[in-house]
Nucleic acid binder design. Sequence first.
DNA 1: TCCTCCGGTGGGCATTCTGTACAGCGGTGC
DNA 2: GCACCGCTGTACAGAATGCCCACCGGAGGA
Lengths: 183, 183
Amino acid sequence: MPPAHSPSSPGSPNSAAPQGTSIVGSTNDTIDTLDGRLIRLLAEEPRIGVLECSRRLQVARGTVQARLDRLQAKGVIGGFGPEVDPAAIGYPVTAFATLEISQGQGSDVRAHLAGVPEVLELHTITGIGDMMVRIVARSNADLQRVIDRVVGFDGIVRSSTAIVLENPVPYRILPLVDQAAAE
Amino acid sequence: MPPAHSPSSPGSPNSAAPQGTSIVGSTNDTIDTLDGRLIRLLAEEPRIGVLECSRRLQVARGTVQARLDRLQAKGVIGGFGPEVDPAAIGYPVTAFATLEISQGQGSDVRAHLAGVPEVLELHTITGIGDMMVRIVARSNADLQRVIDRVVGFDGIVRSSTAIVLENPVPYRILPLVDQAAAE
DNA sequence: TCCTCCGGTGGGCATTCTGTACAGCGGTGC
DNA sequence: GCACCGCTGTACAGAATGCCCACCGGAGGA
């Protein structure tokens, strides 16, 4: 493939017609369709670079670069870190634990939980419990050890655990991105 | 910076001494320390390429390339998709809903939930409920709409929702990677 | 109404990285 | 003892990146 771009109209150098969507208020609002297509493209084939994106999206390279910079600056795209599968590194068991915390012990408990590698995620929630953690373990037996370590801390009054059996819909964001882009 | 690599010992071309860890059984088991350092490096600075990795890790470029290929082939690294923040695209409210399903309706319910963009994740679990979904919404008011759409389906008998107030520990995997690498 | 700003386009440049190949070394296991 | 596998340097052509420019055209303010 030659390094040429792929000018649809080779003769006329300029045919500036904003793609994606009218820019209207794209600066402060969410994302437009071009952003959506770009995110989808990168999500599906992360290995392609900016130049390839511009080819697929039929826009100028500078546009893709600018959009990417803007998306990262706005915090829409946090990064491109590798997605590591816990199961593949020896932690095939996932569980959600709901924790009840005694008054005023919140920050201590958070610090404690943040120090446990098997705790992948921690939320404070409304409802029955006060906190919800996502934990992983090497096996069901190992899960016992992890739970003991997680709840073995002053300030955690009660806890209940739900083991994940299946994961019919793994974490995804693309459908939401499409919806946001089509706003 | 000149295109020269950075040979520590310019004279002697070969000083092969396996880094990371003795390879022992690295092929079938999990990951070694070199893998761990590589993943951490990529997670922290995803934009750097293979060459830069090899410089930081003080190993040959081919090694980094081989490790990366292997990690991807083994499924340890799933991809390098952009991490999109739902809050940044207009969905700042997160909630977890526990669903109780009537017998035999499982697969229908899954299909239904998979069709809802606001459903980011779906698990089948042990315990009180049968399923657990992670959902997002544009606002607390909008959450009502989303919940109605989620549970408005034959086969879902009961549901309870917990709104996420705070997220003291956002999803992370690095501490676990370190632990697995130090096995 | 005119003017400025901003985002998009197309092009060009030097630098850098990638993909791929090669031979050699050394530890592991048969 | 020998073959295998992983790591090391090295090399090369092709491709992509980062950064520059001039220009166009719509939106919004003066």
